[in-house]
């Protein structure tokens, strides 16, 4: 539990840091949108034996995400919990190899983006068209797939060193 909290916390801080500096160097047409908190949740999921414990982790980081970044207390908690449940559902269908983890990550990002866009559109908070959503998803994938591969390898090595059991 502590191991995964540290991994997700580092990812959250890295997401905040990169969101500050990437637009300066890349410009307004930012092709790298970090969603490292979500990616790290997908990576640490196989280290949980009990779904309830993983959902608690999703709740805590959904709350922090809401308070720190979006001021929408409850929205990200709900979305993170939902992604936790989807990961649990996918667990029976997909193994925990790197390829499967990337597929799970892509599904999680798509679900998160489509739902947050849909809810905000439904509540008349924004008026972007669907093309912007598709572009956002595509932009999200590039950087996050790279981060997922790096994090998967790092977490795998540390997990072995600390002898933390991973579910297959």
């Amino acid at each position: 539990m502590i191991f995964s909290i540290i991994i997700v916390s580092i990812s959250l801080l890295l997401e905040a840091l990169l969101s500050n500096y990437l637009p300066i160097f890349v410009g307004s047409q930012n092709f790298f949108i970090p969603m490292f908190t979500l990616v790290s949740l997908v990576i640490v999921f196989p280290y949980y034996n009990e779904t309830s414990k993983f959902l608690k982790l999703c709740f805590i980081f959904g709350l922090i995400y809401d308070i720190l970044f979006t001021n929408t207390i409850g929205l990200n908690i709900t979305l993170f919990l939902l992604i936790g449940l989807i990961l649990n559902f996918l667990d029976s269908a997909l193994s925990n190899t790197l390829f499967s983890i990337i597929i799970k990550m892509v599904i999680s990002i798509i679900v998160y983006d489509v739902l947050s866009y849909g809810i905000l559109l439904l509540l008349n908070y924004l008026n972007y068209n669907v093309l912007v959503l598709l572009m956002k998803i595509l932009k999200s994938l590039t950087l996050n797939v790279i981060y997922a591969i790096i994090l998967y390898l790092i977490v795998g090595v540390i997990g072995k060193e600390l002898k933390i059991k991973k579910l297959n």
């Binding site: 969101s19 637009p23 949108i33 970044f69 001021n71 929408t72 947050s116 908070y125």
Partner: peptide
């Protein structure tokens, strides 16, 4: 000073 920048993407804050 700016301490966080538009992490939620849709919120533009």
């Amino acid at each position: 000073s700016v301490i966080n920048r538009n992490v939620g993407y849709w919120y533009d804050t």
